[in-house]
């Protein structure tokens, strides 16, 4: 089953969750052949029920000890800019779309997302500047994440 995994880390990122379960984004995902959506929502106020996205099997949870299994199972990972999820997704060779939380002031994790983007390991956008649908409709869903050079290149 073609799966998208969305993770927001230890805090909350309601804008991202709302964008991903919006009708536009769901349609875009279904059109790309995705059948399952798994959301890790953290402390956010939105915890969608299993039937909130027609066309997709939806599963949402707040926290897990390890999201490694969810990343392994996913065909596309959408993440906040957290270093942990970036490293884990790229380490597992999964295509990664980073959505930066532009409501966080002085978000230093942005530096990592920008750098990994500049080195073509991932795509990144913000909820406001680019709608999730637009991002999904660009090359995000099909980029071949350059994991080999991620492993080799970054080790000097």
């Amino acid at each position: 089953m073609k799966t998208v995994f969305v993770t927001v880390g230890t805090t909350s990122f309601d804008d991202l969750i709302a964008s991903v379960i919006s009708q536009d984004a769901v349609q875009a995902l279904v059109a790309r052949g995705y059948e399952e959506l798994v959301l890790q929502v953290g402390r956010g106020s939105i915890l969608p029920g299993p039937d909130s996205c027609p066309g997709l099997t939806l599963q949402a949870f707040r926290f897990k000890d390890s999201i490694a299994g969810d990343i392994q199972r996913a065909d596309l990972v959408i993440s906040h800019a957290g270093a942990g999820s970036c490293l884990e997704a790229l380490g597992a060779g999964r295509p990664l779309l980073v959505v930066v939380n532009d409501r966080l002031m002085d978000n230093h994790q942005l530096e990592l997302a920008r750098k990994l983007h500049a080195d073509s390991h991932l795509l990144y956008c913000t909820c406001r500047s680019v709608s999730t649908r637009a991002a999904l409709n660009t090359r995000a869903y099909c980029i071949c994440t350059d994991t080999e050079s991620f492993h080799m290149g970054l080790q000097g």
């Binding site: 994790q109 530096e111 990592l112 750098k115």
Partner: peptide, 10 residues
Amino acid sequence: ESICRVERLS
């Protein structure tokens, strides 16, 4: 130093 720090130290 955290991997998040690309250009400036914390």
